[in-house]
Design a protein around this nucleic acid. Structure first.
Length: 540
RNA sequence: GCCUCCGUAGCUCAGUGGAUAGAGCACCGGACUUCUAAUCCGAUGGUCGCAGGUUCGAAUCCUGCCGGGGGCGCCA
């Protein structure tokens, strides 16, 4: 901008971007920071990119802490900081502690993040487990980014599936085969036995009354089991919302009435329809069936309205790919209420988790009882490995899980690579203390001249923007990938640079300063693992 | 038919318009009297599904095609 003002560049000031994007180059030879701003401005200015770059270069070299500014290739500007300026970061990370990487100020945005929301007709299977891991991590990341996040679980305890569940329990309790449209699996028998134990004299009651008891008690037991599994997985929801309450309280009727006032519904074929096709949906949707019963979507209407009335600017919903067909109608519903789809309602679609055995896919079916549950997974590989393996992939990528393979290769899970790096930093700190290397005695970042040190520092500097980006894009896997990169750079640093002197050597300021770097790395690894809900062990 | 996700190294996957496309696993060869070798160093490995287009620049954006997953109820 100053080049424009000095008249060296003939450019409309409006064409100069207010923010110049400066990036961390992938290639170390390209300096600490790089920008392609000259390439972008060259055409508008009618000058060669390298000429524009030269003008910017002149000004950048005068900035304190900048060691060199090179013009490379077609006109990239590569900025190299001097070691002292780059190294200062180690101290600021140590001083910021757990706050490093989190937003300086709250954004004031109230986010409702709904995930898992598995039906209470069975335990949480692998798919739900993926959303538990990803959703909880996303909640942590968004919180770090300054949002006020509420984790919410929608409990579908209403409708025909619950009746099927109740009939299945009833049948199991009487030793009858699973009903045609019912649920199989060992857990049905277990729940049925628990209900029988809780309600004395139940088998003597009229059949219909029994079914109602099995429904009420069975759902409650299933719900408790689900909550317990999630808690064991490190996932706690702020709100467990019961669909039934929407029907019981009249919220569903109120939601439909509201849409009627807005002129968004009409009657046809004895049913009430919502004009979702006015808002991009393929067709209109029934909200009240011709038999007078509310259609499933009416619960969603009321639920969405409820969230908005509770003050959430942003309602984020995570769904499996098998539900992606609902996105259109949900967004249309949001628009029908006068809200802005994509902002007030945001739907994240994630691909499925497939069960594989001996190289061939196995279809998981709740009804056939061939599900692999959250608890099965945790039992096999542990919480940390399970969460990490589910969160390190993009949600756009389907995951194949082979339990046998997972157990055998559990040591190949990159979580151990990251955790080991953290354990190493902890151990280095212990050894340093024993050797009399103390942080408070010195910090001279100009001594951090090793290649591995500057690479490590560069990675540490990126952490806050990785957290911010993972939050903006709702992609926690970015954080996991970053931590793997950071751990790698630490391992290389560890290999090349000693923090404690060898036997017989003096403690110098180099050791003391490296201890700052070690501790800063430990802090970032711990902060990052924390955002994934994965432990940061001190020894392994 | 329509919607949506995917197609990148032998395998599993990163890479939201930038420079020579990366990592792990697998395979081959090295480094442990060690601040923990769950680590590090080196080598091998690519028509980024295909064809056009936009751009100074495309794995990335647009269009079409090929191949695969998932979805398209007055079920919940």
């Amino acid at each position: 901008m100053s080049a424009v003002q000095a008249g060296e560049l003939s450019l409309d000031p409006a064409d100069v971007p207010a923010e110049v994007r400066v990036e961390r180059p992938k290639n170390r030879d390209h300096g600490d920071w790089a920008t392609s701003v000259a390439l972008q401005l060259a055409k508008r200015a009618g000058r060669a990119p390298r000429e524009v770059a030269a003008l910017v270069q002149e000004r950048l070299v005068r900035v304190p802490g900048v060691k060199a500014v090179d013009i490379a290739g077609p006109g990239f500007l590569n900025v190299t900081l001097d070691a002292a300026a780059a190294g200062e970061l180690a101290r600021s990370i140590v001083e910021a502690g757990a706050a490093y990487g989190t937003a300086a100020e709250p954004t004031g945005e109230k986010v409702n993040l709904e995930f898992v929301s598995a039906n209470p007709t069975g335990p949480i299977h692998l798919g739900g487990t993926r959303w538990a891991a990803v959703g909880d991590s996303l909640a942590r990341i968004l919180t770090a980014a300054g949002a006020e996040v509420t984790r919410e679980y929608y409990f579908n305890d209403h409708g025909a599936q619950i009746d099927r569940f109740a009939r299945s329990l009833l049948a199991a309790a009487h030793g009858e085969p699973t009903p045609e449209d019912g649920y199989g699996g060992a857990y049905i028998g277990e729940i049925a036995q628990q209900v029988l134990a809780r309600v004395p004299g139940l088998p003597q009651q009229p059949r219909e009354q029994q079914q109602e008891t099995f429904r009420r008690e069975g759902v409650e037991l299933m719900f408790a089991e689900i909550k317990e599994s999630l808690a064991g997985f490190g996932v706690e929801f702020d709100v467990y919302f019961h669909e039934d309450s929407l029907h019981a309280s009249g919220a569903v009727e109120r939601a439909v009435a509201r849409l009627r006032e807005l002129g968004r519904v009409y009657e046809a074929d004895g049913a009430t329809w919502l004009r979702t096709s006015d808002f991009g949906d393929d067709k209109d949707r029934v909200v009240v069936k011709s038999d007078g019963q509310p259609a499933y979507i009416s619960g969603d209407l009321a639920y969405y309205l409820d969230k908005r009335e509770r003050g959430f600017d942003r309602c984020v919903l995570m769904l499996g790919a098998d539900h992606h067909g609902y996105v259109g109608r949900m967004m249309a519903m949001c628009a029908a209420f006068g809200d802005e789809p994509g902002r007030n309602l945001e739907i994240l679609i994630g691909q499925m988790v497939n069960l594989v055995k001996d190289g061939t896919p196995v279809r998981m079916s709740k009804r056939a009882g061939t599900v692999v549950t959250l608890e099965d997974l945790v039992e096999q590989v542990g919480v940390d490995a399970a969460r990490y393996s589910l969160v390190r992939s993009s949600v756009d990528t389907p995951i194949d899980v082979d339990l046998d393979l997972l157990v055998k290769r559990s040591n190949d899970n990159p979580v151990y690579y990251v955790q080991y790096a953290h354990a190493r930093t902890a151990n280095v700190a212990v050894n340093a203390a024993a050797a009399g290397v103390r942080r408070e005695d010195a910090f001279d970042p100009a001594l951090l001249t090793d290649e591995t040190e500057s690479l490590l520092l560069a990675a540490l500097a990126e952490f806050p923007s990785v957290v911010a980006r993972a939050g903006e894009l709702r992609e926690p896997h970015r954080l996991a990938r970053y931590l793997e990169e950071l751990a790698g750079r630490f391992h290389k640093f560890y290999d090349a640079c000693r923090v404690t002197p060898r036997a017989g050597e003096e403690v110098t300021d180099v050791h003391r300063t490296r201890l700052w770097v070690n501790d800063a790395t430990r802090q970032v690894l711990a902060n990052g693992l924390g955002l994934l809900g994965v432990g940061a062990p001190e020894r392994m």
